[in-house]
């Protein structure tokens, strides 16, 4: 599942470590602000930026590794927070991958990231419903969707700005 091309493998490692660093920064300096469950999801920016360069399995592996390794950093491996983050990351990755592969000519990162953030939050909330065993958790849905709009749009716009620079550099390197 790892990229065979050594340059791609190096790129994979760089992206993975960038994602981990962003995740760590977010865990330390921006712990769930104001409302439980509301986060920026900085690491999702990295998934977004990786989309053009890697295939499905490589991306999936990167997302999985990021979730597992960052849970080692924050000491939440196999805790509830880990399952929340795993479910959110998986679903949002699948959504973003499908959107990117099917519509990327007509869709910028903003739209992809927005949909990813939305499904990330919905997936987490569904896991919360299963864990708590009550639909009452859904009362958080409007707040989470609002936060998904803000963070998704923000990260998508940042992604738009970064990707232009990045694609020039990386396609030259590869």
């Amino acid at each position: 599942m790892l990229p065979a091309n050594p340059k791609k493998l190096a790129l994979f490692g760089i992206f993975l470590s960038l994602g981990l660093v962003l995740q760590a920064i977010e865990n330390i300096y921006l712990p769930s602000m104001f409302i439980p469950g509301v986060k920026i999801g900085l690491a999702n920016l990295i998934t977004l930026l990786m989309l053009p360069f890697f295939g499905f399995f490589e991306l999936g592996l990167a997302v999985l590794l990021r979730v597992v390794l960052s849970s080692f950093f924050s000491g939440t491996f196999l805790s509830m927070a880990f399952y929340f983050s795993l479910s959110g990351a998986t679903i949002s990755f699948l959504v973003m991958y499908v959107l990117y592969k099917t519509l990327h000519k007509r869709l910028s990162y903003a739209g992809i990231s927005l949909a990813g953030a939305l499904f990330h939050n919905i997936a987490q909330l569904m896991v919360a419903v299963l864990v708590v065993g009550s639909w009452a958790v859904l009362i958080q849905l409007p707040i989470l969707i609002l936060s998904a709009i803000l963070t998704g749009l923000f990260l998508g716009i940042v992604g738009n700005i970064l990707s232009q620079q990045l694609e020039d550099i990386i396609s030259y390197e590869l």
Binding site: L103, L107, S108, A110, G111, L114, A115, L118, I145, L153
Partner: peptide
């Protein structure tokens, strides 16, 4: 933002 981006924004 492309037109489709805005559509997704509106849907969300």
């Amino acid at each position: 933002l492309t037109r489709l981006d805005k559509l997704i924004l509106v849907i969300v």
